[in-house]
């Protein structure tokens, strides 16, 4: 099933008097359960594309359809709904909410969904188990290591069982051991829940795990390679 469809997307940013084209007629399709990544030099447009797919930004031209929704046509409220229910984000700098505990961070999206307490509690504890942090629920974020922080971020994004996970350079602040460990966790979740993962990365260690690598350069797709034969799933 096609879950993300990007069609001739152009994204321009105003710079000075003119404008800068960060994405230049990008067309890409992703299917449920893919474990794909955007790679390319700094400034090639990886984050910009992830932001559009994540409905944090809108294309200047072209169409992006995500989980059945037309990104360019969404209101603020509809975009928030889409993110709240269908998209999980993982960031390079973790972006955990510092004054909350591990549990409260993971619980957040469910609070927004107005899920009752017993449902939230079960879902949060499950998610913490997936990432191996079930004993750290009450810890303060400031007490966590980088690897643990990124695991909390994965649990927070996965707790609502999103259809799509967007991970922007998730390993940039992690050492090799932690990178392998989170990639394995995410790969497991990908297989277990058929969640579509889309990464942006420079990191060879991350690329090892990917089934599909899309090379961007100057806002254009220069290469789109399928690594392993997971075609039967598409």
């Amino acid at each position: 099933m096609k879950i993300i469809s990007v069609e001739n997307v152009v994204k321009c940013f105003p710079v000075g008097d003119g404008k800068f084209t960060a994405l230049d007629h990008i067309s890409l399709d992703f299917f449920t359960g893919e474990f794909a990544g955007l790679v390319g030099p700094s400034g090639s447009g990886k984050t910009t594309l992830l932001n559009i797919i994540g409905s944090l930004d809108k294309p200047s031209k072209g169409k992006a359809q995500v989980a059945g929704k037309d990104i360019e046509a969404l209101t603020h409220k509809q975009a928030a709904q889409l993110r709240n229910h269908s998209i999980g984000f993982i960031f390079q700098v973790f972006n955990l909410l510092p004054v909350y505990t591990v549990f409260e961070n993971v619980e957040f999206a469910l609070l927004l969904q107005k899920k009752p307490w017993h449902e939230r509690k079960k879902a949060v504890m499950d998610a913490l188990e997936w990432v191996g942090l079930e004993n750290m629920a009450d810890k303060k974020i400031s007490k966590l290591s980088g690897g643990e922080s990124q695991r909390v971020a994965i649990a927070r994004a996965m707790v609502k069982r999103p259809r799509i996970m967007l991970a922007d350079e998730p390993s940039a602040n992690l050492d090799a051991k932690n990178t392998h460990s989170i990639m394995e966790t995410m790969k497991t979740l990908n297989q277990e829940f058929k969640t579509t993962f889309l990464f942006s990365t420079h990191d060879e260690k991350v690329m090892q795990y990917l089934d599909r690598i899309i090379h961007l350069e100057d806002g254009k797709v220069v290469k789109d390679e399928i690594i392993t034969s997971r075609k039967e799933d598409f």
Partner: peptide, 16 residues
Amino acid sequence: QREIGTYIALGMTRLQ
């Protein structure tokens, strides 16, 4: 700012 961005990424509307 990052926190605000995170709230929005997690599904809060700007008005929220």
